[in-house]
Write a protein that binds this DNA or RNA. Structure first.
Lengths: 189, 189
DNA sequence: CGACATATTGAGATCCATCAACCAATGTGG
DNA sequence: CCACATTGGTTGATGGATCTCAATATGTCG
């Protein structure tokens, strides 16, 4: 997986100048404040946000409970996949968890660019493949791991999550209650 | 989602003869008997199986328990996504649940074909997008639904599952125990 | 300081898994 | 074609993981 990200980055580095120029031309730098919503529920996700700095999350509300589906750090690509791909209303919100700086590309601009620069289709494919594998692994987690195991997993594999995010968000990302998470932490240390 | 499948099928219908011929040239019809393994754990998933008839499933074993991750019916595409994409050993098995007839395409043959027929890259992208959305929705299920809700969901949305598969498989697909599923069914009817 | 968000801890309830016994249908070898 | 094994499903008893509700503590910021 790590190496697949490298492969993607290599692919980007190897793009011709025209393709890169086309990408830059349709990109737009924006900033958001902590707490701002980059995408609201029922809105169509018509832009992709490449995180340049800061942290964001994607979440939805079910039975008055917030469930975090993805956390975004520097270099990540944020958007609601289903909404973006089908151009239908989003079930999810995207929220800035800190002040955030992003590079924005509009859906339609990117679709057009793919027509003119076929290498962007290949890039798109690689990115979606990467996301699919990530999704598969997350499903695998929910299929096999207990609350404690899920927590230990991010402690070892993604310690930056724990250092930079409130437990409320972590719990909602692991789909366990804040209380359970608190108890797990007490027992472990 | 339904309509996205239609869009994909339309795209295939609209392909030029050369592209279609190239696809057919690298396809191979094969049959498997009920119980046969189309892919074994630790094997690299080097072929995709387009199901022409019959039923198959993908599963892995965790703590001596089989967990079914996907069910394949006519027209579905069967392979272990991560293993196929990264060409690394598969965590999962693919098993024929009935006698099965498939059209097989080798990974490398398809990669080559994409080089020569760029429309296949677009097709590949659409298929992976479809799979990502499917994965997102499955994750959504596991995040939000109880055992009973998951069961009712397939009763209403995929009744053919219940008609054609033993409860053991259904339970393992919903990630609940066979006993729990049996009790849910008893309570409902 | 006061107010609001964040985290901890306790008690009780709930969902579901596990273990075990049992039943029904199917099929196979002698 | 019977006897018995195998597969698939049901039902009961029990326990564990985790949720919910509620009270309390800690932290942070205007």
């Amino acid at each position: 997986m790590q190496s697949y990200l490298e492969k993607i980055n290599q692919y980007i580095s190897g793009l011709d100048k025209e393709t890169i120029a086309a990408l830059e031309q349709i990109s737009d730098i924006k900033t958001y404040k902590k707490g701002d919503l980059l995408l609201k529920q029922n809105e169509v996700s018509s832009k992709s946000y490449h995180i340049l700095s800061g942290i964001a999350r994607k979440f939805f509300i079910h039975n008055d409970k917030e469930i975090t589906t993805e956390l975004y750090f520097e270099q990540d690509l944020a958007f609601s996949f289903e909404s973006y791909t089908l151009q239908t209303p989003s079930k999810e919100y995207i929220e800035a968890l800190t002040d955030v700086k992003v590079s924005v590309i509009h859906y339609h601009a990117f679709q057009d660019a793919k027509q003119k620069f076929p290498k962007l289709t290949t890039l798109d494919l690689m990115l979606v493949e990467y996301y699919s594998i990530w999704l598969e692994n997350r499903l695998f987690q929910f299929h096999t791991q207990s609350a404690t195991e899920k927590y230990l997993d991010i402690v070892t594999k993604s310690p930056h999550l724990i250092q930079q995010l409130p437990l409320t968000i972590i719990a909602s990302y692991l789909n366990i209650s804040l209380e359970t998470l608190s108890r797990i932490r007490a027992k472990i240390s």
